[in-house]
Design a binder for these strands. Structure first.
Lengths: 339, 339
DNA sequence: TTGTAGGCGTTATCAT
DNA sequence: ATGATAACGCCTACAA
């Protein structure tokens, strides 16, 4: 039991709580002698400040909240690692919550964090999220908020993303340059900004290369952009459009599903159909054929988001004005065997 | 800003804080009229109790801590999901920390959680952890502790694991039954209980089947049992022991490394060398050949660990005696293409 | 039925 | 150099 309090130390030493507190916090107006006595006894009793009391006094929790769609996810795990690393540096703790891609959960998790009075919130939106009142609630509580990856463009806060549109544009341009002409796109669901942007990048790349955009070559992966989606849509596209020679997938997990299907039915990758993923999950480098993909720097996104959030928390604490940032981190094409 | 306090409500209504508090908590000794007035105003002002004050008063944080070796990890992500699900049910929040497989970090993270005064701690030990004073610190703080997966047998607390020794025994017996005779084992590092137990299961299965145990067929994966380890050790074993016909890997990630190497050098799986993994990571079902493995129920382990922890937290709160449990969850062999 | 008073443990202000 | 006092916001004996 470590329930030593300032009071106990004060009593044992026959001095006031105030003096004990000052000694421990290195105030100058305490004599060396008392200070040392206090520090020694504190160490001996293994004193640590009661964080509940400190929170109440200082009105900060030294804790931030993180809401992500799902944890079992290569990209988000990497984001979290980046966040934890930054938090650790600053002696902050991180409470992690999942929205499970549900708008209702997302709202609930926000309430939990707000009630807990975390000092700031990091979020990537769920696929269902199409309105943003709940985010404005955060801002109205005056709690710093940083959005990353799946963001709301219209909400007034800092954001960290990649340039999804450009990344997709480059990706599809790369396919075209390699000679692929009939390129299907397996897109994400309709709401998330990043799936919209990747789709727009795809479309623009086709147009800029004089390939007529054909909406029937676009398949939607609306079940969390997962493996099954890729598998099932691959089956469909092969039936409906045997003429395609490449598929650009919204994310690696979908691409892995595609590859699995193509492998099963004996369609050669990339000679018959090329597959290009997005995100560079670890798994992509160990499947056969190894997946070509776009590197999306999850760890860096996490670090940057957290670092901006902590800056804003500090600015707020010092009553300084906050200037919101919109950061876009660089991506690159990773060419492997599937293209 | 949502800084409504009991005091403000009391002032606006011209009554005492006590009465407001009682009304909101449904005490019987408040007149219907005042109670309703209070509740109405509270809703209107969007009152929520200040959790800092509640924590200080009640001495509980409604928060638990979780320390795992690493987050970017199929098994641990699944564990976390199980934990979050149980926590959510009980309105508990979860602070997640990584040890990065370092003993020093593990100690530090424990201190952080203890200082934060979490109501309980869930842990899976790092590969470096060979002494357990830091765990006893937790217990001496009277903070409930549940260990899972990588546990310390000698520490007096509840534990949730699989029966690693039996699972490995069954796994190797299965290989033998399929006709494999020269079976190498890529084991984990020397300290973690589960890597010891898997090794012992391997050895026992050989002996029970009249295969002489050959220590030179055991390779250690001491770099976090990762992909590279599997790859490098596969290279070694093929050189040093070309006669082997199967490899039993301590975990899927290692197995995936093995498969990658064997594929690269054109060794046929399973006809020349069979590969059996452990843990059933998602990835294992999508690589080629699909990996045979042992299913280790991460989600269930997380749920069970959390549920035991919450039970202990409640018992402690009610000053009831706690009986520590040691739970072993069932595993099963998943036969795919690599064996 | 309502309110007073004290305490949870820390910190900050203001006297001494 | 030291300490008394109040305050953070909530809860709960114990009056009234």
């Amino acid at each position: 039991m470590n329930n030593t309090t300032l009071k106990q130390i004060a009593n044992q030493l026959g001095i006031s709580i105030t003096t004990v507190s000052k000694s421990l916090k290195g105030y100058s107006d305490v004599s060396e002698k008392t200070k040392n006595a206090v520090i020694e006894l504190a160490n001996q009793l293994n004193y640590t400040p009661n964080s509940f009391a400190v929170n109440l006094r200082t009105k900060e929790s030294k804790t931030i909240g993180l809401i992500i769609p799902t944890l079992v996810h290569d990209f988000f795990s990497n984001v979290i690692q980046g966040i934890l690393e930054e938090a650790e540096k600053r002696d902050y703790l991180v409470i992690i919550l999942q929205s499970n891609e549900k708008f209702e959960f997302e709202k609930k998790q926000i309430d939990l964090l707000l009630n807990k009075r975390v000092d700031g919130i990091l979020m990537s939106l769920s696929n269902e999220t199409g309105e943003f009142e709940h985010l404005k609630t955060i801002l109205s509580h005056n709690t710093p908020l940083v959005l990353f990856d799946k963001i709301a463009k219209l909400v007034n806060c800092s954001k960290v993303t990649i340039n999804d549109r450009k990344a997709a544009y480059d990706a599809v341009s790369y396919l075209i340059k390699k000679g692929y002409k009939k390129i299907a796109h397996f897109r994400g669901s309709y709401l998330p900004q990043n799936s919209i942007d990747r789709f727009l990048g795809y479309k623009k790349a086709l147009e800029d290369n004089n390939i007529i955009y054909d909406s029937s070559l676009v398949y939607v992966c609306d079940n969390n952009m997962d493996f099954e989606n890729g598998y099932e849509n691959a089956k469909k596209v092969v039936n409906e459009h045997p003429e395609i020679d490449a598929i650009f997938a919204v994310t690696d997990l979908v691409a892995v599903g595609i590859i699995k299907y193509l492998n099963e039915v004996g369609i050669a990758i990339p000679t018959q159909i090329a597959v290009l993923g997005f995100s560079n999950w670890f798994m992509s480098s160990v499947i056969s054929p190894k997946l070509s993909t776009i590197d999306q720097p999850g760890f860096k996104i996490g670090r940057k988001s957290a670092s901006i959030l902590f800056d804003e928390i500090n600015l707020k604490k010092n009553n300084l004005p906050i200037v919101f940032q919109s950061i876009e981190l660089a991506t690159s094409i990773i060419e492997r065997q599937s293209t």
